[in-house]
Design a protein around this nucleic acid. Structure first.
Lengths: 128, 128
DNA sequence: TATTAATTACGAAAAGCTTCGTAGTGCAAA
DNA sequence: TTTGCACTACGAAGCTTTTCGTAATTAATA
């Protein structure tokens, strides 16, 4: 649970998502992925990733001319960190209210609902 | 439903939280509440709230010298809006993954778990 | 009336985030 | 070798958000 690393910005999070999904990547690859959704300049992505290295969010391998970047922060850890902050700032800490709202407003498949039920059962057993 | 109003910033959200919790309030009241948690200058809060009026997030009553501000945006609507964006950017749209993580990492009371179960049952019935 | 205290108005500085232009570097192909 | 291409480096502009200082206004009070 080490958390020296600051909350990533929106643009940083987009880059992290690509790295989490595809593993260590070049700027070119990430910029291509981001560009599928919206126009992004190559040097913009490059600069952001260089800043992320400075912040300790990414590390890079500079053995070859073409640098390969890797996420230092884990996906689940980061999601948990952001989730905690989000629940606090948006729901004043009321995590359950947020869960209810998420369940109520998304089309959820029966399989997913069963998964959640199973999780709840597990938690209830642990609490006994 | 309609969403002309832009996503509130962090500082704006803090102000909204006070207004949602206590109803229409003066700058003084809100600044006092915010200051309970962190040092905030009075004119900083004032300026923010004036900007929020410009943006249409708040309205104010200027009948008396001491203006009373009121939130235009509803708490649940705003939470839903922010939740959707959060799930998208942080969990790549995987709302259920987020729910599972929220359930797994917070101490949840049996009553709350039962509430969720009831909600799931309700959803499952509707889907039939 | 004059003073004091609390408020609003508002510009501008400060800080953080994002974008971009330009220069430099190295490699490969002509 | 020379040219061209893809990449890195990096400063700085542009924008948004936040903070703050100062002036103007109003109301109560001495």
């Amino acid at each position: 649970m080490n958390d020296q690393i600051p909350k990533p910005t929106e643009a940083e999070l987009e880059i992290l998502q690509v790295l989490w999904q595809y593993g260590p990547s070049t700027v070119r690859f990430i910029n291509d992925k981001l560009s599928e959704q919206r126009e992004v300049g190559y040097t913009t992505t490059l600069k952001l990733m260089q800043i992320m290295v400075e912040k300790g969010i990414l590390v890079r391998n500079t053995d070859s001319k073409i640098h390969v970047y890797r996420a230092v922060v884990g996906e689940s850890d980061t999601q948990q960190q952001l989730l905690d902050k989000f629940v606090e700032s948006t729901f004043r800490g009321a995590a359950m209210k947020m869960v209810m709202q998420a369940l109520g407003n998304h089309k959820t498949s029966p399989a997913e609902l069963d998964e959640i039920k199973a999780l709840i059962d597990k938690i209830e057993k642990e609490q006994k």
